[in-house]
Design a protein around this nucleic acid. Structure first.
Lengths: 264, 264
DNA sequence: GCGCTGTATTAACTTGAGTTATCGGCGTTT
DNA sequence: AAACGCCGATAACTCAAGTTAATACAGCGC
């Protein structure tokens, strides 16, 4: 994997500057890329867990199947994301993972994380930061699922995807590609597919969201953020420089990509 | 803080054996204990974040206030838990934290975590494991909130608390103390307080749960687990020995406390 | 062209949980 | 012991979202 088009290095670099040694360590996480097709299952719940994956291309999601046949999608992974961090403490998978899209996935064993812990405090801190950021995405989704209406849930999800894609340059001008079906959206938002359709229809009439096939257009992203009571704090993902051993300028303001926030 | 009654050391020891150096490092996290009263706010959303807390005694919870005046409780912390891990990557608090109970709290700065990263791979791995375990609790709550009925939500929460308390010896024979009000339960489960009351009444009639004041009795814990479709995988919290540098017996089965699982 | 399958739309009906309101019990204060 | 406030129980009513079902439409293989 070429150091300059490694998604992982790009992703880690959002958090802080990396030394060449650090980059070399990270590169090893993108050995053995594997082509995968839309719908492919990377692993199922309760499978033995001994490796992580990085997404090089394509989208993936993690999910839980429930007793009554329904399904809950937990996370949506984009290129550069690490899958399976949550299972570090477990020997079994707690959630299945499946591809939304065709893509490229790289595997690396849990052990490799220990090597990183031993060899680079900087990367350890960044990994910890990435893990806490994933957790904050989860927390935000939890609040969303527990306390908001269907309109707000969908608005929030769409705006969150818009911001995340915008941070990686994959969205612009209120337009982006969203390869999820309405059923997958429903499973993400804890709604029925029928109600997702109804909600899209309502948004279309209000001129808030236009969706055709897998293209979404937000004529007025800020208006959508208002509906969702969106507060982008949880997406601001720079590690404060004070944490990094080779950085003496304590409390220098972060210079990473910052999401445009709408405070409610 | 005496090494033998440190909650933190007890908590970390669940994951793996610790060297004396490791214990000394951990002890420093329980400097400066502070007495706190029920209802005390440790911090609010958007406060500046630069320290973690450990709970020595008492219960605490993290919460988010929403635009419409409602509130979502995210996590319930018990003695031995670390509060604020999620905010490692952020300079602001993403959630408020407040005491349920009178208790004792110890503060330590974010920096201290970096010291640990530098000085002990074992503790780094355990911290990572603790963080992933917290995340798995959150995930489970998310599934619960998104996809289950009020009966299942409450049953699941009660049974989860029962297992967690049992692991620390604070529950036995299907009885435990639950210092949360019905309103706090409602805010945890994304329900109204009225409906929590209704659900308790139903459980009482079915003989599933008896609650008076802050004492809960589960006449038949397994029956409750059935109702909740409870799968205790996510609570089994031993770090597999393969991860620990000073452990050569790879794949030795974990010997930690294990929750009695009910597979659906 | 045809039929197949998966995906989306819309309508009619049902239901689980929210809302509002009233009332009783218990603990605390004065 | 009277007064207050908090918490919990129950009932009546409302409403958001689920369910079922009918229909449409696109992509795909043949």
């Amino acid at each position: 994997m070429n150091r300059n088009d490694s998604c992982i290095i790009r992703h880690f670099s959002h958090y802080c500057a990396l030394s060449d040694d650090d980059k070399a360590l990270l590169c090893e996480l993108e050995d053995s890329p594997q082509d995968v097709k839309s719908g492919d299952v990377l692993w199922k719940e309760n499978d033995h867990a001994s490796e992580f994956c990085t997404v090089s291309r394509g989208w993936a999601y993690s999910y839980r199947n429930l007793g009554d046949g329904s399904r809950q999608i937990l996370e949506v992974f984009l290129p550069g994301d690490i899958i399976g961090l949550r299972e570090f403490a477990f020997s079994q998978r707690l959630a299945g993972v499946s591809m939304i899209d065709d893509g490229v996935i790289c595997h690396f064993p849990h052990r490799r994380l220990l090597d990183i812990f031993r060899q680079s405090t900087t990367l350890t801190a960044v990994l910890f930061a990435i893990s806490s950021r994933q957790q904050s995405l989860l927390t935000e989704r939890l609040v969303n699922l527990a306390r908001r209406t269907a309109h707000q849930k969908l608005a929030h999800f769409l705006y969150e995807m818009y911001v995340r894609l915008d941070q990686t340059g994959a969205a612009g001008e209120g337009k982006f590609r969203l390869p999820l079906s309405q059923e997958q959206l429903a499973d993400t938002l804890g709604l029925s597919a029928v109600h997702v359709s109804r909600t899209f229809s309502a948004f279309r009439e209000e001129g808030l969201v236009l969706r055709e096939r897998h293209k979404v257009t937000l004529p007025d992203p800020q208006a959508l953020a208002q509906v969702a009571e969106f507060d982008a704090c949880y997406l601001n993902d720079s590690v404060r420089p004070i944490f990094l051993e080779n950085d003496n300028a304590a409390m220098r303001p972060p210079n990473g990509v910052s999401a445009s926030a709408v405070k409610s």
